[in-house]
Amino acid sequence: MEDRKIRLAGMIYESLSNGPGLRRVLFSQGCRHKCKNCFNPHTHSFTGGELMDMDEIIVDIVSNPMIKGVTFSGGDPLEQAEKFSYIAKKVREKGKSVWIYTGYTFEEILSKISENKGWEKLLNYTDVLVDGKFDTNKKDEKLKFRGSANQRIIDIRKSLNTKEIYTINC
């Protein structure tokens, strides 16, 4: 990949609430979903945030032995799937897990995968996908790793291998 910059709205260097274990969280800049009462509305614009060097991000993640994985949130990481797939590949090669939060459902992703550059590649480097738009009417603060009851925590490895959706209960 020639352009080694990714547009991020922000980053959490150490998080325990965006997947299991201590995680680095990258917030993608750009989202088409614009969910009502989104907790990150500043991430919706595709021109906001800042450009960051992906190789520097990767080195910082893999050099920290305390970090168990990386979580891509948003915005929507699928809007920059090629760039996130580059990061995901590199961190998985170093034994770190990859979680993605997206407003797209797994079914939508599969039905549109051929027309969206990078989606398939990104899924192939993903361990867990939390799918679906945030639904303020189904908000539940007791849910672990998701904001509303319609969102699913999907084991992507198992789901892609069997062509069935395997959810994880947390």
Rank of each mutant, 00 (worst) to 15 (best):
K142M: 10
I12V: 14
P20H: 07
Y86T: 00
I58D: 02
I57T: 14
N18M: 12
N64D: 15
M11W: 00
D135G: 07
T136C: 06
K89D: 14
K96W: 08
G48H: 09
G147F: 06
D135I: 12
T47D: 15
Y125G: 06
D140V: 11
L16P: 08
K142Y: 10
K90H: 14
K83G: 06
N150L: 09
E82Y: 13
S114L: 10
R32S: 08
D53E: 03
S63I: 10
D60Q: 15
K83D: 01
T102H: 05
S111D: 14
E108D: 10
K36S: 15
K34C: 06
G75R: 00
I57N: 09
H44A: 02
H42M: 11
G48T: 11
E108R: 08
G132F: 08
G21L: 11
D55V: 09
L26H: 00
L51E: 15
F106C: 05
S63D: 15
I87C: 13
C31E: 10
W119Q: 10
P77V: 04
H33K: 03
G75V: 01
P65E: 13
F106E: 05
Q80G: 12
N116P: 01
R32T: 13
V128I: 15
N150V: 07
H42R: 14
K96V: 08
Y13S: 03
N37L: 14
E115G: 07
K68D: 03
N116Y: 05
G19P: 08
M11G: 01
D60P: 04
K83L: 06
E50V: 06
N124L: 09
S111R: 13
F39V: 12
I87A: 13
K90T: 02
K90M: 12
K117C: 07
H33M: 09
S15T: 10
K142E: 14
L22S: 11
R92T: 13
M66F: 15
R32F: 11
K68P: 03
T105E: 08
S111K: 14
K138S: 09
Y13N: 04
Q80N: 15
K36T: 13
I12Q: 01
K139P: 03
L110R: 05
D140G: 11
E14Y: 04
K89W: 05
I12R: 01
C35Q: 09
L26T: 00
G49W: 00
L143T: 03
K142D: 11
V130Y: 09
N124Q: 13
F145P: 05
P20E: 15
V91L: 12
G132A: 07
I57R: 03
C31N: 13
I61H: 02
E107W: 04
K133N: 11
E93R: 13
K139L: 10
K139M: 13
D127C: 06
C38R: 08
E108V: 05
I113M: 04
K89Q: 15
D131I: 07
L16E: 09
E93S: 12
E107S: 11
N40T: 02
E79F: 12
R24Y: 05
W99T: 12
N137F: 09
R92E: 06
L16Q: 07
G147N: 04
